[in-house]
């Protein structure tokens, strides 16, 4: 299948890109890795007039860490770079793990995390971990820059909070406290090249006593029209002692807050059941991480 023809431009600087994007409005689409966009065009689900290729813009490259600001990742960074980055492995290992589960090696060397997030598929690999991290998005436009918690980014199925002329510039993951950890769990039918049947990011921070949950985030994918956090469950778990009852409450809570449907990949029943298993396993993994860090200290 061939899509409609389109014009293609590769701006040489961010400023040039912002101007072009502002002037072309709805007719233009941002092209990053193209691994989602070109599929839609070829299947004739989209017919943009102009593609603005941002994949080589130097201003959008780079991964950096600052103890105060945390981890920043540019929108132009490839998923494969995130997967391999020593900084990401150290400060957000669950994100490196999620990145390693996106598509194939070939896809990962083309794809960007920004594309993954902006495509806003509810089954996408990286949003649950980013939600768990409490990630902040840097949103750019010709008018300037704004920041938005990722939890406010996904509005509806494949709909984001980006306004006309706005684009995603980068990600900021706040530094993880010593007694906090993030985990990612997913289920596909096979072990690679999967659009997940279900996935889940977990954040757990313990009180100084090492036995009480200070803060919990549970972000689920493929159980509704967007990736989202199980807010009521998070609230309920806060202050609980992290024991079997805590894990059971987490599992039951996410299952109750999940609103999956039956589709070709899995039934709603299966998703409801397994989302709890993933929550339990994710939290257990967080506890292990925190525990081993405490032991070392």
């Amino acid at each position: 299948m061939h899509g409609q023809s389109f014009a293609y431009q590769r701006p040489g600087s961010l400023r040039e890109f912002e101007a072009l994007y502002a002037s072309h409005g709805d007719n233009a689409k941002i092209l990053a890795g193209g691994t989602d966009l070109l599929v839609l065009i070829k299947e004739r689900l989209l017919a943009p007039r102009l593609l603005l290729d941002i994949s080589d813009l130097p201003e959008l490259k780079g991964i950096a860490y600052d103890p105060a600001a945390g981890l920043t990742i540019g929108a132009g960074v490839k998923v494969a770079e995130i997967e391999r980055s020593a900084l990401v492995k150290e400060h957000a290992p669950a994100l490196a793990f999620a990145a390693s589960n996106l598509g194939s090696n070939q896809v990962r060397w083309m794809a960007t995390m920004a594309g993954n997030v902006c495509h806003a598929s509810p089954a996408a690999e990286t949003p649950p971990v980013l939600l768990a991290h409490g990630c902040e998005l840097l949103i750019g436009s010709q008018a300037g820059e704004r920041r938005l918690p990722i939890a406010e980014f996904f509005l509806a199925y494949r709909k984001t909070a980006l306004k006309p002329g706005e684009y995603l510039k980068g990600f900021r993951l706040p530094p993880l406290a010593a007694d906090a950890a993030v985990a990612y769990r997913l289920r596909g039918l096979r072990r690679a090249m999967e659009i997940d049947m279900i996935n889940l990011g977990v954040y757990l921070r313990l009180e100084a006593d090492g036995a009480t949950a200070a803060e919990v985030r549970l972000a689920m994918g493929s159980v509704g029209p967007i990736s989202y956090r199980a807010a009521a469950t998070e609230e309920k778990l806060k202050g609980m002692t992290v024991d079997e009852a805590f894990l059971a409450a987490a599992a039951a809570g996410v299952a109750a807050e999940a609103a999956p449907i039956d589709d070709v990949r899995a039934s709603a029943d299966y998703r409801n059941r397994v989302v709890g298993v993933l929550a339990r396993r994710g939290l257990t993994h967080c506890l292990e991480q925190i525990g081993s860090r405490r032991n070392k200290a």
Binding site: L189, R190, R191, A192, M193, I195, V264
Partner: peptide, 16 residues
């Protein structure tokens, strides 16, 4: 056919 692509028709991968 509901899944006539190698995206949706799942053959095992090297990871399996």
């Amino acid at each position: 056919l509901m899944n006539p692509s190698l995206h949706d028709y799942k053959i095992p991968t090297m990871a399996d």
